[in-house]
């Protein structure tokens, strides 16, 4: 059975596409799936840095496309999990080095051997986006609870709907701050879902650990204490078809609220 090709996209930059790709990829591999991550952000590659594989890259996706090496040679194995591979982007070229058909071809080859092919899409809706989406049959739209990110996500969903290959797209709300939502300073997850009228695949809370893990070159899902890591693992489980309830990211502020919450939980369960 061929695996599925999932593109991770957002339109707006800086909402966490690459972090999401690295973490979902690692989480899926830790769950026992064979996963390959493709970085299509040619010229501004970062995925290798997040996985800590920077120093192992010899061949890149451009070398594969221009037939300087075999596809298998360009796959960089993860340090910890042998189920996880990375196909890195070239740093010294730009987006026009690869075209949609070539990337589609690569996705189709990898689909035969891997359970999940995750494509990390660059920001924007130009050539890079068109390339990344070409081979995908599923999409995850990453957004944050801000108007600018939501507007861009809306545009991306529109473009995805007009694409033939993409059968399904789901929304991932990133960098959520429960405290701000409570004080009505930030849009709630329900509002975001309502505006975009789209299925939700997960909610990731804002987490300091993300910054340290990026600098260390180790995805946050390997950190058991991290809340964001737990949320990403839940997203990965949902991708595999499991039904997982949304993670409770609500942080009670006062003692009274904590007590209330404790009892309301008791009453429910």
């Amino acid at each position: 059975m061929a695996g599925s090709v999932i593109v991770i996209t957002s339109g707006k930059g800086g909402v966490g596409k690459t972090t999401t790709s690295a973490n979902i990829g690692t989480a899926l591999a830790n769950l026992g799936n064979k996963v390959v991550l493709i970085d299509t952000d040619i010229g501004l590659r970062n995925l290798d840095l997040l996985l800590g594989l920077e120093n192992r890259i010899v061949y890149t996706i451009v070398d594969v496309v221009e037939e300087r090496c075999k596809l298998k040679q360009a796959l960089v194995k993860d340090k910890k999990n042998p189920n996880l591979c990375l196909l890195a982007a070239a740093q010294t070229r730009d987006k026009s080095a690869v075209d949609s058909d070539q990337l589609k071809n690569i996705c189709e080859q990898l689909k035969e051997e891997f359970d999940y092919v995750l494509v990390d899409c660059p920001a924007g809706i130009e050539q890079g986006f068109q390339n990344a989406v070409a081979g995908a049959n599923e999409a995850i739209v990453v957004t944050t609870p801000e108007m600018s990110a939501i507007r861009d996500a809306d545009r991306i969903i529109g473009l995805l709907e007009s694409k033939e290959g993409v059968e399904r797209y789901r929304l991932l709300v990133n960098r959520v701050r429960p405290k701000l939502i409570k004080s009505n300073d930030m849009m709630g997850v329900d509002d975001v879902v309502e505006i975009l009228s789209c299925d939700l695949i997960g909610v990731i809370p804002e987490d300091m650990n993300i910054i340290t893990s990026t600098n260390k070159g180790e995805p946050v899902v390997n950190d058991e204490k991290s809340l964001a890591g737990a949320a990403y693992i839940n997203v990965a489980r949902r991708i595999t078809g499991e039904e997982v309830p949304l993670l409770d990211i609500d942080v009670p502020t006062t003692l009274m609220e904590k007590i209330k919450k404790f009892f309301s939980k008791k009453a429910q369960g």
Binding site: K70, K72, Q73, L75, K77, E113
Partner: peptide, 11 residues
Amino acid sequence: LEKEFENAEKN
């Protein structure tokens, strides 16, 4: 090139 991707080449 080995046919099997299983042993994706060790770096």
